[in-house]
Structures are given as structure tokens and as C-alpha cells.
Amino acid sequence: MPNSNAPVVLSDLSKSFGSTRAVSSVTWSPKPGRVTALVGLNGAGKSTLMRLVTGLMRPGQGAVRIATGSDRRPLSAMIEAPALHTALTVRRNLRVHALLTGATAAETAEAAELAQVTHVLDRRVGTLSQGYRQRTAMALALLRRPEVLLLDEPTNALDPQAIAVLRTMIREVADQGCAVVVSTHQLRELDGVADDLTLLHSGQVLYDGPFDAFVGPAGLRIRAADQAATTRLAALMRADGLAAEQAPDGIRTPPNGRGADATAQHVFATAARAGIELVELSHLTPTLEEAFHSVISGARS
């Protein structure tokens, strides 16, 4: 449930384009001081959701409530490719948006420093690399220390070093109290940066919670002393009602309603009765991509 005191709250938000429901009854709010990864397949509604929140699009239904009254800017965003005036210098781009947002010279300098563009202020944006254009766009987005910052695919077309710089910047901004929402396809880039994850599929929120909890356990891997023993153990497990898939690296049993620890004890007991020596019994952790595809597949079915 969204926090009604949050700076931005989406209530039952929907948007359709003709017969296509791009966003469907989304109720959600980004959490201050945390980085939320907004993930989903192409066409899931991530960009549409961001455009609805920023007011670039009008919702068909529902509302976006943006809290005002704070000294800080309530909402800022970087939607899609950096939208900069290429004929102007970085400094002038910043001044234009400082005028628009009411940012002071000190706040402008702070944003430039945070985005690490202070050494290119007098260069025309058109002469900058993609990475520096992205940083300049970030500096514009950071003016007046927004309470909520939306970043739509910020790592597109960036090299690994630029991505690393961006990740550090995102973390730093969140640590200053900003609710940062990052939409991306590159799930791995968010590992270690994101605190929460919101999964969109067909315009609906399928998951909204801690990033680590999304991944969750993926069952157990069991290996016996040799292949024959492993095969015998797998058959015994199936006879006991446990799902057991034999793989090159041993037996895999998916999560079930009993829990991992209870399942492990059951496997121990089964192996002990049959006189089978176990050399490995470990918890499996799926990759982020596996968890993602598992949830999407479940939603589709």
C-alpha cells in the first residue's frame, strides 16, 4: 500500500491507447531514501507510467498526487534520451533549467558537482560524449534536490565505466533522502544498487517490495557420492512425493509448501534410510533474470 505521506502517490492509475491498456489500476508510491528498480518487459508500461507521473501524459483514470510545501522540488525526471539544447553549453543548459525550477546558483553548483560535470561546464553539449550528456541531463534533473527522481533507462548507450559512475550517483542521491526510481531492462545493473523492486507486466504491478526478497529461494540441490546413488535417491524422493529433477550437477528440487529446511530434513531422512551418502545439500538462489522470468511466466499462465 502506498504511504499517504509520500511525496508522490499514484492512486488507481490507468492509461489506454485505443484498445491497449498500457497502465492498469496502478496504486503505488516510491519510498524516500530508497532506490526502486522499475522493471518489466518491453511494452510493460514502464515509460508510460513515468510519463503519467511527470504529467507528460494525462491518465485516463486515477490520479497522481504530488505533495508540495517543501523547500525541495517535489518531482524530477530524466525520461528516455537526454533532452538537452545541444547548441548551448552545459552551463547555459543548467542556467535555463535553474531559471525554470527556481534553483539558486548554489543549488545549481551542487547539482553539477553531484553529476560530475563541473569540468565540462563551458563545453557545448553537442560536443560531449553520450556519457557526459547523460550526466548533464542528470544534473538538470537534480536541480533543487528533488524528493522523487525518476530515471527512464538511464544506462542506455553507456559504457561500463559510465554505468558505474551513474550507479554511484544514484546511490548517493538516494542516501540524501530522495526516492529514486530507475526503469531498466538491464536487471544486473541494479543488483547491489536497488533497495526495492517494482515489476510491471501488461500495465499491472506484479511485485512491489524489497529487491532481495524478489529473488527468493529456488529450492535445493542434492548430490550423492556417485551417479547411481544420485539416480536412486531421485527415484526415492519422487516416491515420497517430492519433485526431483536430475541435472548434470545433481538433483534439483523446487520450492514447495513445506519450506526449504523441512524439505532438507526429509531428503536427509530418505537418504539415510536407503544408506545413500550425501556429498552436497545446498539452497539454490536463482539469478535475477530467472526470478524475473519465473514471475512473468506465472503471470502469463
Binding site: G55, L56, E80, A83, L84, T86, H97
Partner: peptide
């Protein structure tokens, strides 16, 4: 055409 309208509208609701 350039997309800069996005940044302007985000800065000035």
C-alpha cells in the same frame, strides 16, 4: 522535435 519539451515540462508543471 528534439525532445527538450520533456525537460521543460518536468521543470515547469
Amino acid at each position: 522535435s528534439s525532445g527538450t519539451i520533456r525537460a521543460w515540462l518536468i521543470s515547469v508543471p
